[in-house]
Nucleic acid binder design. Sequence first.
DNA 1: TAGTGGTCTAGACCACCGT
DNA 2: CGGTGGTCTAGACCACTAA
Lengths: 256, 256
Amino acid sequence: MVDVTEFLCSTTQMAQISPTFSPLYRQIRGLILQALESGEWRPGQVIPSEQELAARFSVSQGTVRKAIDEMAADNILVRRQGRGTYVASHTDPRQMFRFLRLVPEEGELLTHPKSIPIDCWRAKAGHEAARALGIETGTPIIILRRMLQFSGKPIVGDEIYLPEEIFRGLDMEMLQAWNSSLYSLFETRFGLRMIRAQERIRAIAADRAAAELLRVEEGTPLLSVERVTYTYGDKPVEWRRGVYSTADHYYLNDLT
Amino acid sequence: MVDVTEFLCSTTQMAQISPTFSPLYRQIRGLILQALESGEWRPGQVIPSEQELAARFSVSQGTVRKAIDEMAADNILVRRQGRGTYVASHTDPRQMFRFLRLVPEEGELLTHPKSIPIDCWRAKAGHEAARALGIETGTPIIILRRMLQFSGKPIVGDEIYLPEEIFRGLDMEMLQAWNSSLYSLFETRFGLRMIRAQERIRAIAADRAAAELLRVEEGTPLLSVERVTYTYGDKPVEWRRGVYSTADHYYLNDLT
DNA sequence: TAGTGGTCTAGACCACCGT
DNA sequence: CGGTGGTCTAGACCACTAA
């Protein structure tokens, strides 16, 4: 174990020379994050044991533990007692619709919704999409429309905007061949792990397109849900606008 | 420091005899929670130092620390380096509208909304209210209507259902004399600390009452936000139904 | 049985705060 | 300056898993 003051930067020095000081366990977190970004450990796989990581980074097991604790709280890693620590994955059935807050009015939390692709084409980023994705207006993007069915009924319509640079090769064929969640597709085919998202919700009246898709009257109040999804380093990689029918479903949100 | 196996229940014994086993730090958390419920330390006040609590409960400081860590993550306690650990309070300006997710379309996150009481009366719990509050139908309750103004404009209308037993004495006079958030009033006058809440969100069309209150056309799509708020022990103590105008505001939600 | 994460302890030192 | 929370370490033992 090296002396703390010799590692990376001593806490004392950092505190004095820089306002971006961070404790050792946060630096370790950064190193683990780096390894994850580089693809050293893939979603669903085990990462090395705490002891091994402690040796690798020349810190105590307790410090590695605290770093992993934080990352587990952020849903980046998953601890499994007796087995090891795993890279979180949207392919895990329990994480599959992690960001979907819509639930049926009557129970049925057990049944997963089904994603039906409608169409998919290439385009150039407009003003709004560019701002949401943090790219230049005019940058090539892929636009994808899909529907979400609960128990066979269309409840959600989504229009999804993706930077073409990251999602090169995504097309209808690939979408139709995939019968699971979109994020698990993104993870599996493009190595993209979604860490967090932010939604902006409004009430709107159904326009003709939405009314036809969700089989409701034109003008029916619907939830408009705009979502920006972020990968490592808080980089936005997806923007979507959705319309939710809330006749038999509601958006459930826990406030803490 | 007593031997762990002599404290409350040994982990080994508990694991064998009971499925409700919990580690020491979680039992300590329970004891601290008990002290909070009993009113031993009030919102905004300092609680004893980690060392003192460790001595009081005959465990190590590290174990107390872990208990407090959890409670700080749950917004029950607030740590302040160099000063001590405080009981979280809705009277704190930063916590005042902790559960309100509605934000203006254009910046202005700095300005707080203003709560305007409309009326307040006693009634008996209907079926819905009783179910939400976990009480018998017919139990005396207080119903309170109020409006929330952003920059002077009416944006939210709330109908709030409160068990009369807990909120005895709440009336228009008290409401009008209070020019801060409702939860800070509840905390100050009724000793009720709100820990968490759950919201169910739907899109609805404005009925006449909502339209008049929020000064929109009848039929305008609005957010319907139902909230149940819980105090210690996950006891529901408030049910509210709100309508939000989302023409110039939106409901912001972080997904993790 | 070996290896992993989970808990608990004890002690050292640092950073921050009020006096 | 003394007291508080914050970080880091080292080591013991427990609980869970898989082979």
